[in-house]
């Protein structure tokens, strides 16, 4: 299954929006953090995990999803949130800790929740798995349409909770897809150091479900594999496991010196930046004109600017609101 022209444009648009968003966040993040870097300072305090380079996975999967489908994301959630259709204004405001943020500033960038598009996060490795499996169970029990996708990193596959959730999804034949974003690094520990096998897709055999590894950080190939897995889940045929090779063009978090990377690795990754690659392919395939791509890029930049402006101009969270919303109203 290949993406239609419209789907290709949607994918490119979301990849560009995601990248422009990360670039904007990266720039603002360092405001107030120099000359001395103190994570607590500036308009965006705290840890910041950027998704530059990993956009193909988010768009290749989310191109098949509707708002009613469920996604659980990780500590590195921005590209997934954007591709799932999370409100960009509220998301930006949340990252700034503003009153108008998704949770009014209670969550922050690792805890983005948008109930309108069934998007949730956990900042703990592999712990989005259980809730996604549970959402899939809920849909099956209610006879309601929708699938659940858990995005995790390749490091999460070594967590016990990952295996528990995979087994549960398989033994109950749930409409669930686990998408592993293999960026090769768990903070500073390489996949080779941490994992006993090369392709985590092979682990699907342990649960008697289909598993597929997609090489090359290729949005078209990811689209195709995700389309099959999601169609399978929608047809009631059960869960699937996908591992997508991707590239972390940023550090683990902002401020990461990345001394653990082999020399030259990052330069090589930037050579393979998926956004210019997709642009070239769209033009080569005749799937988009230069003018169309320019328009998409301008729209994306404007959309991000508007979200950042909304966030900056919003009121700070009220300190005393910290004491509310612990329990359901």
């Amino acid at each position: 299954m290949s993406p239609t022209r419209e789907e290709q444009h949607w994918m490119y648009r979301n990849m560009v929006t995601s990248r422009r968003f990360e670039e904007a966040i990266a720039k603002i993040y360092f405001e107030g953090k120099s000359p001395a870097f103190n994570m607590a300072n500036g308009p965006i305090p705290g840890e910041m995990h950027l998704s530059d380079g990993q956009e193909p996975v988010a768009v290749g999967v989310c191109a098949h999803l509707t708002p009613e489908d469920v996604v659980t994301a990780t500590h590195r959630p921005h590209h997934q949130a954007i591709a799932k259709g999370v409100d960009l204004d509220k998301m930006a405001a949340e990252i700034f800790g503003k009153k108008t943020g998704l949770s009014g500033g209670r969550g922050g960038h690792m805890h983005l929740f948008d109930d309108d598009v069934n998007f949730a996060c956990s900042g703990i490795i592999a712990q989005g798995m259980g809730p996604a499996v549970g959402a899939a169970l809920s849909r099956k029990m209610q006879g309601k349409p929708g699938v659940a996708v858990a995005f995790v990193g390749e490091g999460a596959v070594n967590q016990g909770g990952w295996h528990e959730a995979m087994n549960l999804a398989a033994v109950w034949n749930l409409p669930f897809i686990c998408v592993v974003e293999d960026n090769g690094w768990g903070i500073s520990v390489s996949k080779e150091t941490a994992s006993s096998i090369g392709s985590h897709a092979d682990r699907a055999a342990a649960y008697g479900i289909p598993g597929k590894r997609i090489e090359g950080n290729d949005p078209y190939a990811i689209f195709e594999a995700a389309g099959e897995a999601i169609a399978r889940a929608r047809a009631g045929e059960g869960p699937s496991l996908l591992e997508c090779e991707t590239y972390r063009l940023a550090g683990h978090f902002m401020g990461d010196a990345e001394a653990y990377r082999p020399e030259g690795e990052k330069d090589a990754l930037f050579e393979k930046d998926p956004i210019p690659k997709m642009r070239e392919r769209l033009l080569a395939d005749g799937a988009a004109s230069e003018a169309e791509l320019n328009a998409i890029e301008e729209d994306s930049a404007a959309r991000v600017d508007a979200a950042i402006t909304f966030a900056r101009e919003s009121d700070d969270a009220a300190p005393e609101d910290a004491l509310t919303a612990v329990f359901a109203a």
């Binding site: 469920v70 712990q127 259980g130 499996v133 549970g134 899939a136 169970l137 209610q142 087994n167 549960l168």
Partner: peptide, 22 residues
Amino acid sequence: TPISETAFIGAAVGAAQDGMRP
């Protein structure tokens, strides 16, 4: 359930957020 408390309690959270009352 299987003996998988992390999975089924986590699943209950996801089901609860999705309209069930586990």
